[in-house]
């Protein structure tokens, strides 16, 4: 039998309203045990209001070689930021 355990990535939401944040991983063979293991490991100090577990193999990541073509083209689109626009002196609430 393959001795290698299945790895799950754990995401914890610390309270309602906040985004889930990656915390680390746990080993488990099915989703219920993955959830329980994540609960026992990552919320021992009241850190959680919700937990997500995802099989690591199901996570798709961009790679560093993608970075230039993925992210650099957004560099010169300064018009997407509010500071790009000139407002007349004294303009309020805008």
């Amino acid at each position: 039998m393959n001795k290698q355990a299945t790895i799950w990535e754990v995401f914890i939401q610390s309270k309602n309203g906040l985004a889930h944040k990656h915390a680390g991983n746990v080993h488990a063979e099915d989703k219920e045990m993955a959830l329980q293991n994540a609960r026992d490991l990552y919320t021992r100090r009241n850190e959680g209001s919700c937990i997500w577990v995802v099989k690591s193999e199901h996570i798709v990541s961009s790679v560093p070689e993608d970075a230039e073509s993925f992210f650099d083209p957004a560099n010169d689109k300064v018009y997407r930021h509010p500071t790009f626009y000139k407002m007349p002196d004294g303009a309020k609430h805008i």
Binding site: A5, V26, H27, A28, Q36, D40, L41, R44
Partner: peptide
């Protein structure tokens, strides 16, 4: 039997 379960039993 696993480190995860060690923690669970302690809890």
């Amino acid at each position: 039997p696993t480190l995860e379960e060690d923690i669970a039993l302690a809890n």
